[in-house]
Amino acid sequence: MSYANLLLEKNNGITTITINRPKKLNALNKETISELHEAFKEANLDKSTKAIIVTGSGEKAFVAGADISEFADYDIEEGKMLAAKGQELLFDFVENLSTPVIAAVNGFALGGGLELAMACHFRVASDNAKMGLPEVSLGVIPGYGGTQRLPQLIGKGRAMELIMTAGMIDANSALNYGLVNHVTTLEELLPFCEKIAGKIVRNSSVAISAAIRAVNANYKDGVNGFNTEILEFGNSFGTADFEEGTTAFLEKRKADFPGE
């Protein structure tokens, strides 16, 4: 499938999705959100893809935010629908994807951009990255999961301060807060993410998908994460990957997981 606002590259089991709207600092408009949904869906269905990296084109921005011009004149109901549809189509979709997603945060990750990065399974930032949720400076609040995921990642107090001040933090502060896992130079950002993704690719994709479901269960209302872990752990024993992994271990050789 061809995309107007995205670039896709597949190599060694890794699909890299690049948001390509450099003149708009890769801002998320409706078309780009829809295309991202399709690109993540395509990569997730591709059995040769074992890890996904998402980043922004150029050196200035991962995603500088949402395209405000598209919703500046919305009413209350339209605002609710905007948030609900966006969360379902992209942000919740990415969080619950069975293929691991790494956000390679280059430059500005603001508003919807930070919300997209937080929906990914983990984040790596370049040393020029700036992150924040500036929505209250526009008279609105984060609507793509920002008020929920930011406190989960950095704690309630820090999240409250960042949201209320509409401020930005740099990459080192984000690392200190636990918002990102690593900080690299801009030049090393993608190679570093590819190195981590390469480690992921070597492992059982079936087990990784189960681990994602188990971890996410802890953050879902009314769901007992421990019970989900028990279920997913037990189910693992019925997979071809478990048979191959344990056999390879006992035979002292490298596992060749079939992904089943």
Score class of each variant (00 low, 15 high):
26 N>V: 00
64 A>C: 12
4 A>V: 13
103 A>H: 03
62 F>L: 01
108 F>D: 06
182 H>W: 14
200 I>P: 07
99 T>F: 01
84 A>V: 10
106 N>R: 15
26 N>M: 02
177 Y>G: 04
103 A>S: 15
209 S>Y: 05
53 I>F: 05
88 E>W: 10
60 K>L: 13
31 E>P: 02
142 P>N: 11
121 H>A: 11
36 L>H: 04
82 L>Q: 08
210 A>N: 09
92 D>F: 01
220 K>E: 15
152 Q>Y: 09
142 P>M: 12
110 L>T: 06
173 S>C: 00
110 L>D: 00
259 G>P: 06
161 E>G: 10
78 E>N: 08
187 E>H: 09
64 A>Q: 04
204 S>Q: 06
233 F>W: 14
201 V>F: 12
144 Y>W: 15
82 L>E: 09
229 E>Y: 08
42 E>F: 09
118 M>P: 00
105 V>F: 01
78 E>V: 04
158 R>G: 02
237 F>Q: 12
35 E>G: 01
130 K>A: 15
32 T>E: 01
172 N>H: 14
255 A>H: 05
40 F>T: 06
241 D>G: 06
130 K>T: 09
206 V>M: 06
255 A>Y: 07
39 A>E: 00
258 P>T: 00
110 L>N: 01
199 K>T: 11
190 L>M: 09
92 D>G: 06
76 I>Q: 02
254 K>R: 15
156 K>V: 01
113 G>S: 05
54 V>R: 03
36 L>D: 06
118 M>K: 08
209 S>K: 13
257 F>G: 01
111 G>L: 03
189 L>G: 00
239 T>S: 14
257 F>W: 11
100 P>L: 03
73 D>I: 14
11 N>K: 15
217 A>W: 03
172 N>R: 14
65 G>F: 09
97 L>A: 15
201 V>D: 11
29 N>I: 05
71 F>P: 03
140 V>H: 10
86 G>K: 05
96 N>L: 00
241 D>P: 01
254 K>P: 04
208 I>P: 07
42 E>N: 11
161 E>H: 13
162 L>K: 10
32 T>S: 10
80 K>A: 12
180 V>H: 05
255 A>L: 11
82 L>C: 09
29 N>K: 06
149 R>Y: 02
170 D>H: 08
193 C>H: 07
111 G>K: 09
6 L>G: 11
9 E>R: 12
217 A>K: 01
99 T>N: 02
62 F>Q: 02
151 P>E: 01
82 L>R: 14
124 V>R: 05
109 A>P: 08
30 K>M: 10
95 E>F: 06
63 V>L: 07
198 G>Y: 07
204 S>M: 08
236 S>Y: 15
199 K>I: 12
82 L>D: 06
3 Y>K: 07
208 I>M: 15
93 F>N: 05
225 G>L: 04
35 E>A: 04
182 H>R: 14
105 V>K: 02
144 Y>V: 10
238 G>W: 00
54 V>F: 05
227 N>K: 15
47 K>L: 13
161 E>M: 11
226 F>E: 14
205 S>F: 00
101 V>R: 01
137 S>G: 10
250 L>T: 14
